[in-house]
Simulated assay, not measured.
Amino acid sequence: MKSLLKVMLILGAIFASTFILGRVLGILTVENVQFWLEQAQTVDPLYVIGTVVLLLFIDLFVAVPTLTIMILAGYFLGFPAGAATAFTGSAMAAFAGYGLSRKWGDRAIGFLIKDEKQRTELEEAFYRNGPVMITLSRAAPIVTEVTACMAGATRMPFWRYVLFFSISTLPYVLIATYAGSISSLENPKPAIFGMLFLYLSLWIGWFLFRRSQGMTKRV
């Protein structure tokens, strides 16, 4: 488990550095995202769809405010169009991360973890805990991308990854975009309450997961 956490923390640090860089450069801020979507809306709603999909896809390479983008997708496109668009962009990023890591991830893990026994233990640990990690990955930024890469690198069957990714992401997208669709600049409360509900539910899930892990170890 230690090797798994080590690799995931390193991956998380890499993704986090892209987020910090984007904030420092002032590129991928919430204000900029909203401005781009507003400009796209003035041209054609299809441009909004393309912008949302592109922003969520590049989240694999440069961390973006994912939940905000999903809420804005609901605001600009309505429901369910915003939900379909947001899910498409998120799935493209996740599946690309899985595919790239399945092809080259074992080399990266071999570079970080030299001992073959520890690499085997890492794969076994993700096999046991990966489904829950993927399911609860929306609880915090970056974790979704990290678990996508770990699923590919450890050769989790693609259908299995898609199943748990969908269980994690589909309700998240539906709630976020619906909250955005019934929100406005004058009444942002639905979006705020939607964000709080999502994070509270996922954090409770992580708490229960960690508690069950601790109980299992004691047994």
Rank of each mutant, 00 (worst) to 15 (best):
Q118I: 03
Y127Q: 12
G89T: 04
F197L: 15
A153S: 14
P188E: 05
P141W: 02
L163N: 01
P171H: 01
P157S: 05
F111A: 12
Y199I: 13
M92D: 01
A148H: 04
L163P: 03
I192R: 00
L100N: 02
Y199M: 11
M150A: 11
E123N: 13
A140W: 12
P141A: 11
A96L: 08
G152F: 08
E145G: 06
N187D: 14
M195V: 15
K189C: 06
R119K: 15
A94P: 10
Y199L: 13
W159E: 10
A91I: 11
R119V: 09
R155N: 11
E123L: 08
Y127T: 12
L100C: 07
E116A: 14
A140M: 14
A140N: 07
L112W: 14
P131K: 00
M133K: 04
R102L: 12
G110M: 08
A125S: 15
R155L: 12
P190E: 10
E116I: 10
T88S: 13
S168E: 03
Y178R: 03
L196R: 10
P188W: 03
L198V: 11
V143H: 00
L185N: 13
L122C: 10
G105I: 04
L100I: 15
F111Y: 13
E116W: 03
S183H: 03
F165Q: 01
L170T: 09
A93F: 09
P157D: 03
Y172D: 01
L196M: 12
R102I: 02
T135W: 11
P157C: 08
T88F: 07
S166K: 00
R160H: 08
S168N: 08
R128F: 06
A148Q: 08
A125F: 10
A148P: 01
Y161V: 06
E121P: 02
K103W: 09
